[in-house]
Structure formats: structure tokens, C-alpha cells
């Protein structure tokens, strides 16, 4: 409890690290902050061209089908892989200054969240412009979905950030893990394409529930399946608790290992 209070006390640090990251990233480029929107928009452009001209799939508006799942997936996978380097890259800070170390993964994941929310603006704009539209009743369900994903992302970032300090290979291993995980999550395909007997295995992956829920709300314009989402929330809490505990143990020797 004390730790939570302390982390809350350091909220300004979390905010400034996020701000520094968001603002620092595009500083010096001509278009600056506009890149935050341009980047997903251009990605979408590429998908549209590839999947509606070259590689046609049976799914209607495949570029949207993919895009509404890919944006949340990027949030998760960049928390996983970015988490790995978030302590190491702040080596000097960790070695020289005291602050609750949790601040680093928290600001990383929150920064990725903010990035996703900004990209979501593009998603909504495209949904409206393309005439697909949104379902205002299903839309509020996006909030718990985002929350569940945040729990999962934070839990995994606690683990990847702290373990990588001791085992530097993890940074590279996680890139592969993230790619494999993406293919095992219905990001590029629909869960219905998965053979029946494997589907139960798929639902164990909490990210499947999360991605499917995003797609339900944004693409199918319907209220997401709540039972799988609840399981994912439970798993998210367990992952977060376990991740934080592990982080708490490993954190004690960060300064020496770095």
C-alpha cells in the first residue's frame, strides 16, 4: 500500500516522462507532432492498397478489420518489447537517483496507451469518413476493454523490464515472442477461422479476448462478449500482481546489475 502511495506521489514524474517521450520523439522533424496521426494514417493507406487491390481476402473491408485490431495490438506488443529496454535505457537515472522503479514501466505503458488513444482518433475518423459509422451503445464498452488491456500490458512490462536487466538476451528474444504472439492472436484473421478443436486454446490467450472485443465494438459494431473479457480481466490482474511482485524482488539489485 505504501508503495502505491509513493508511486502516486511520483505521478508528476510519470507525466513528465510521458510528455518528454511524446514530444521528444518528433522534435526536430518538420511536421512534428502531426506525425502521431500521420503515421497510423499512412499505415492504413498501405493496408488498404495491399489488401483491397493486391491480396484480396474474403473479409469485407479487410483494411478496417485489420486496422481496428492492429492499433490495440501495437499498444500491447510495444509494451512487451519496449518494456524490455525501459530500465536499461534509463541506466544513468537508476544508478544515480532514487525513485520508485515502477515509475519506468508505468510511464512506458501509459505512453503506449496514449499513443494508441491518439491513433484511435484516426480510427474513428476513418470509420466515420468511410461510412462504416459507429454504434454509440457499444462504444462505452471500449473503456473496460482498454482497461483490461492496460492491466495485461503493465503486468507483462513489469516482467520484461525487470528480467531483462539480469538477462540481456531477453530484449531480442521478446521481439520473436511478440511476433509469434501476434500470429497466435486473431489480429490478422478472425477467430472463426481457427479450427474448432484449437479454439479453446486460443481463448486462454487473454489478448485474443481483448482483440476480439475491440473488433466487436469497432468493426462489427456490437457489444463485446463479456465472459471472455472477464476471464481476460482476471488473468490481467493475476499477471499484474505476479509481475509486480517479481519486479519488487528484482528491483533491489538494479543499480548493481546495470
Amino acid at each position: 500500500m505504501n508503495k502505491i502511495q509513493e508511486i502516486y506521489h511520483y505521478r508528476t514524474m510519470i507525466a513528465s516522462l510521458i510528455k518528454r517521450d511524446l514530444r521528444g520523439r518528433y522534435k526536430g522533424s518538420v511536421l512534428g507532432f502531426a506525425w502521431t496521426f500521420l503515421n497510423p494514417l499512412l499505415q492504413l493507406g498501405v493496408y488498404t492498397v495491399v489488401f483491397s487491390v493486391i491480396m484480396r481476402s474474403g473479409i469485407e473491408d479487410y483494411y478496417l478489420f485489420l486496422f481496428v485490431a492492429l492499433i490495440p495490438w501495437i499498444f500491447f506488443s510495444s509494451s512487451l518489447t519496449g518494456g524490455a529496454s525501459c530500465i536499461i535505457s534509463q541506466k544513468e537515472l537508476v544508478k544515480k537517483i532514487y525513485f520508485p522503479r515502477e515509475v519506468l514501466p508505468i510511464s512506458l505503458v501509459t505512453c503506449q496507451l496514449v499513443n494508441m488513444l491518439l491513433s484511435m482518433i484516426v480510427v474513428f475518423a476513418v470509420l466515420l469518413v468511410s461510412g462504416k459509422g459507429v454504434n454509440l451503445i457499444a462504444l462505452p464498452f471500449l473503456i473496460p476493454v482498454i482497461l483490461v488491456e492496460y492491466l495485461l500490458a503493465l503486468g507483462i512490462a513489469f516482467i520484461s523490464s525487470s528480467v531483462t536487466v539480469y538477462l540481456r538476451d531477453l530484449e531480442h528474444i521478446l521481439l520473436i515472442v511478440a511476433m509469434a504472439w501476434q500470429f497466435l492472436t486473431p489480429v490478422m484473421y478472425s477467430i472463426d477461422m481457427v479450427p474448432e478443436r484449437l479454439r479453446a486454446v486460443f481463448w486462454i490467450n487473454p489478448m485474443s479476448s481483448v482483440i476480439v472485443a475491440y473488433r466487436d465494438v469497432l468493426y462489427y459494431k456490437q457489444i463485446p462478449r463479456l465472459n471472455t473479457l472477464l476471464t481476460a480481466a482476471g488473468l490481467g490482474l493475476i499477471l499484474l500482481a505476479a509481475g509486480w511482485m517479481l519486479f519488487g524482488r528484482l528491483e533491489r539489485h538494479f543499480a548493481e546489475e546495470l
Binding site: 506521489h9 508528476t12 513528465s16 518528454r20 521528444g24 537515472l93 544515480k96 537517483i97 525513485f99
Partner: peptide
């Protein structure tokens, strides 16, 4: 122990004061 922790070269002195001081809690 460490001065100027978290300073970002592209940001103004004023912005860096906020970043740096926030790191001190």
C-alpha cells in the same frame, strides 16, 4: 548525486526544470 537527470537537450530550460524536479519526486 546526479545533476541534470532526465534533461532533454531539445526541450527548453523551463520544461527541463519540470522533468528534472519531478524525478526528484
Amino acid at each position: 548525486i546526479e545533476l541534470g537527470a532526465g534533461f532533454h537537450p531539445d526541450m527548453s530550460g523551463r520544461e527541463n526544470i519540470y522533468i528534472n524536479a519531478s524525478i526528484f519526486g
